[in-house]
């Protein structure tokens, strides 16, 4: 790797004041599972890293607070998988976590790192998008809360200001009769960059048949970043979830998706599988809602 300097802050306050002054040319480093391989491969260069890893006391936690799930930015994927605080309606987090990388990666990759990498290869982003996650961005002057939906501008570009650090991800409480699910397709069964992945979060009316709200997000919809499939969501809202409705939703998804082809897979194939995932994940959500 080309050389860089690492600043090790003594506290969160110290980190924030460092970012206030030097944030412009600084790359924030959680635990590096995304950044370090990219540095090694010369896909990116950095001159200055801010090492957050010593701030686990402040930034590594999973807690329920007034119904919302609050996840510190340094929480690892394994932490999520092992946390008793994540209720059944948020099974999508465990679905994604268990298919994330491999055990070694899960033990190190952080939620904050995942979100800020802002790439379609980051599996947690579609999940958090579908959960309407909110991000707490802290600077030495203030804190602001931004919906994840509005945070990712483009591939590996976010609306984080240069003096800010992502400190917490908040997952708002889901209403009752909610369920969620996730799936991922790759060329083998594990340790893959997703060809397609999808997270669905569903809330049904008390009749357990009509959709109150559906959130559907994928690693890619019409660009190279994770997004919500809003047309599909709009169609499903208020609709009875019959097999015809699901089929129609799949058709809408096909139109909404504009997926590129590369040497890994064609856009057509990715869209075909996305449609199948939509049907299956809606079904899985319904089973999970009714099951509980």
């Amino acid at each position: 790797m080309a050389g860089f300097d690492i600043y090790v802050p003594t506290s969160l306050a110290d980190a924030l004041s460092y970012m206030e002054e030097f944030g412009e040319g600084t790359t924030v480093l959680a635990r590096g599972t995304d950044l370090v391989p990219r540095l090694k491969r010369r896909q990116v260069t950095a001159s200055n890293l801010l090492d957050l890893s010593g701030l686990e006391l402040d930034l590594r936690y999973v807690r329920v607070d007034g119904g919302s799930l609050r996840i510190g930015a340094l929480t690892t994927v394994s932490d999520l998988l092992e946390s008793p605080s994540i209720g059944k309606e948020l099974e999508v987090i465990r679905d994604a976590g268990s298919k994330f990388g491999d055990p070694q990666i899960r033990n190190v990759a952080t939620v904050g790192g995942n979100v800020c990498s802002a790439s379609s290869s980051e599996d947690l982003i579609p999940v958090l998008l579908a959960l309407d996650a909110k991000l707490k961005l802290s600077s030495s002057k203030k804190e602001r809360v931004v919906p994840l939906k509005e945070f990712i501008l483009g591939k590996r570009t976010t609306f984080r200001k240069s003096g800010e650090i992502l400190t917490e991800v908040e997952v708002p409480q889901l209403p009752s009769n909610s369920g969620s699910a996730y799936d991922k397709l790759g060329r083998r069964n594990t340790l893959i960059i997703a060809l397609v992945n999808m997270a669905v979060v569903l809330t049904l009316e008390p009749d357990l048949e009509t959709v109150l709200k559906a959130s559907v997000s994928l690693n890619r919809v019409s660009g190279r970043i994770p997004q919500r499939a809003t047309l599909v969501e709009g169609y499903l809202a208020g609709r009875r979830l019959t097999s015809d409705a699901v089929a129609a939703a799949q058709g809408i998804l096909a139109n909404e998706l504009s997926l590129g082809s590369d040497f890994r897979a064609s856009g057509e194939y990715r869209a075909d599988v996305a449609k199948v995932f939509l049907g299956r994940l809606l079904g899985r959500c319904v089973s999970r809602i009714r099951g509980s």
Binding site: L29, R31, G32, R41, S53, D102, I105, N107, V108
Partner: peptide, 29 residues
């Protein structure tokens, strides 16, 4: 492989299995 994709560098770090090739030594205080 040097990029965290093969696991041959796996060690137990603070009780967890990790790929040492993508862990910065400076973060191992």
């Amino acid at each position: 492989c040097g990029t965290g994709d093969c696991g041959l560098c796996a060690v137990i770090l603070n009780g967890r299995l990790v790929n040492s090739c993508i862990v910065l030594a400076a973060q191992c205080r």
